[in-house]
Design a protein around this nucleic acid. Sequence first.
RNA 1: GAGACCAUGGCGAAAAGGCGAACGCAGCGGACUGUGAAUCCGCCAGUACCGGUUCGAGUCUGGUUGGUCUCCCCA
Length: 426
Amino acid sequence: MAFQKPPGTQDFLPGASEQWQYVERTARDVARKYRFREIRTPVFEATELFQRGVGETTDIVEKEMYTFVDKGDRSMTLRPEGTAGVVRAYVENKLYGEPELSKLYYIGPMFRYERAQAGRYRQFHQFGVEAIGSEDPALDAEVVALGYSFYKEVGLTGVTVDINSVGTPEVRAAYRETLLGFLRPIKDTLCKDCQSRMERNPLRVLDCKVDQDKFEGAPSILDSLDEACSTHFARVRQYLDDMGVPYRVNPRLVRGLDYYTHTAFEYKAQGIGAIDTIGGGGRYNGLVSQIGGEDRPGVGLGIGLERTVMLLESQNAKPDFGPAVDVFVIALGERAERETPGLLYRLREAGLSADKDYQGRKTKTLFKAADRIGARFAAVIGDDELARGEVGLKNLKTQEQRQVPIAAIAEAVRQWNEHDEEGLAQ
RNA sequence: GAGACCAUGGCGAAAAGGCGAACGCAGCGGACUGUGAAUCCGCCAGUACCGGUUCGAGUCUGGUUGGUCUCCCCA
């Protein structure tokens, strides 16, 4: 056993990669419907971008970043999330100068140095969207709906949407004090995690799993919202209602990144060990200026693709990928063997998926092999066929075999297929 | 950063310290030199790695590495 993959990473082998292609295709298609267009940014960026963008005091920046110094003595970091890089590209390429607001999406790997766990990896993949350039609450709702559409399209059931407003930084600071006023008197009764959480991020204490009963009368952030925040949040909810997207207002929802303002939301589902959050996002009105651009409001989401794939598997919602090969050529004898590469090339040029055996296995095994790899047809070619310029084309499903001129194989396969489908339809 | 559990062939899975590491699936060869999904016969690992205890270790023990899961936190 020589080399092993780094901890917390995965190899997606043939058989699994098709599932990923399906999920990614679905993501692209949903993005297209909402008119989000793809942006591709580097997987590494200046470390400072994430420090400023994600927030110095977040767990991500404090202890989860893959940071290295490059040969030019610059500190670089493998992206732990997608938004900072997209916003950087938005600013650097002056997209704010364009007449349209930017509706962007990305699919790609993210990196966080954490202990792996069910549904959590050091290299994981996200589908994310960012709408930058408007504070219309309709966009908040649109982004929430886009994620919901994605889960629906991909075939998942049981996905729920939690939504909250975390207001502006000022609102949050005021609420923080109100909340601490409530928590301090009961601090000694709280679990030790919560006691340390009180220092770092008191809003998160209310999320505690062990002490829920103690927070009955806790103040809600929704009561601390100012007029503008309340109105914005009400609009978002109204739009979601109009769309028929089901959601639950959860005043205790807090996200792990500093940049969120107003709307914050999460998609949840059961079925991946202890983890229930499968995607999330929110509005980030201060982020663009934080990263050095002209101030522009934005809203976005990130969806965990590993978690999506795992849920699909746990729900047995495996899509059918169809036959892998149209024609498997079985050559009998040396002369036929030598004709096969040329034949394969012509079949492929004709648009068919075609393959042969390269391991010198015996005929009997080759029919089994053709079946196993999901071939629809076997093209048997031996001395007799060679002499007549034909192959024996065998439909592996029906066992029916016809002699077909070599030049007409592709055509025969197509026509035979149509017959099959008609037959099935009747 | 903390903790729990686990580690046998391509895969699944046995072996209560003692024959040459069962069995199943898959694979390959042969019976059957050009048409399979049936049958039969063969073949296919020395137990993650390094050390210790023992007459003897896959089984006990120490360490290493990897995996799984949980807390923290998140996708």
